[in-house]
């Protein structure tokens, strides 16, 4: 129907006297990784929550796969999945039970098979029968993302997916996001880490003070700024490189 997975125009939202979104416009093509970059309080989560039908905008419009978030919220929900800023897993259930629960609620035909497939895909098979509250931060996040993939929604919202993860966990999540996009899923992710946007996104929008102040591919954004100077600097390994190299020798995943 339309080649746009997400279309937002003139979106406004205030909480009491605070105007969080002044006028947000953006469009995301199908199969794209779109990064919404901004500092704390820029309105990233508010935007995502409106798109995920959790919040109503004061004015403006938003549609997902051609369905209006206000008029056709049920259709929108069939096409999306939200992975919020904090992992939403049920700690009292095992990893497997969490996935089966979501699969049943989404009306997937074979909930148990779906759960097992996702568990092995996310390297959680060994921990499948353990309660999710015993998982490490990285495992919890992986389970969280796995839960969002149940029923293969067309659009996935990831709100700061790597906040609070160690470098290893972050790389794992990045890999997952790339694989998802390769499989044709549209991804809207928010982040405050420039590197994350640079690594993952086909398209980057910078949200600042309630509106989008820059929007384009990484190359387009670079053109807006003074041309790069060529400097020769001896490349020192960063602490992260060192950390990952040492961990890598351990042979762990």
């Amino acid at each position: 129907m339309t080649d746009l997975a997400i279309q937002v125009s003139a979106l406004r939202k205030s909480f009491k006297a605070t105007e969080v979104l002044k006028s947000v416009d953006l469009s995301v093509r199908r199969g794209e990784i779109f990064a919404l970059l901004g500092s704390n309080g820029a309105g990233k989560t508010t935007t995502i929550n409106i798109l995920a039908t959790l919040l109503k905008p004061d004015s403006g419009s938003a549609s997902i796969c051609g369905f209006d978030v206000l008029r056709q919220p049920v259709k929108v929900r069939e096409n999306i999945s939200l992975t919020g800023q904090f992992a939403a897993v049920d700690g009292l259930l095992t990893g497997r039970e969490n996935l089966v629960l979501i699969a049943r609620l989404r009306g997937v035909h074979s909930p148990h098979q779906t759960a097992d497939m996702l568990l092995s895909r996310f390297g959680l098979s060994a921990a499948a029968q353990r309660r999710a509250d015993s998982y490490s931060g990285g495992m919890t996040r992986r389970l969280d993302i796995a839960m969002s993939l149940v029923g293969t929604p067309a659009v996935i919202f990831l709100d700061e997916p790597t906040t609070g993860l160690d470098p290893e966990g972050r790389l794992e999540v990045w890999k997952t996001i790339k694989e998802l996009a390769d499989g044709g899923t549209t991804i809207l992710l928010t982040t405050q880490q420039l590197e994350e946007a640079e690594q993952l996104a086909d398209h980057i929008a910078i949200l600042h003070g309630g509106s989008i102040i820059a929007n384009g591919t990484l190359n387009e954004l670079k053109q807006h700024f003074p041309p790069a100077k060529v400097e020769y600097i001896e490349k020192q390994p960063s602490l992260e490189d060192i950390f990952l190299a040492i961990i890598g020798q351990k042979g762990g995943k």
Partner: peptide
């Protein structure tokens, strides 16, 4: 608090 509510509410449930 744990976000399960938001998860369920953004699903076709």
């Amino acid at each position: 608090q744990k976000g399960m509510f938001a998860r369920f509410q953004t699903m076709p449930v």
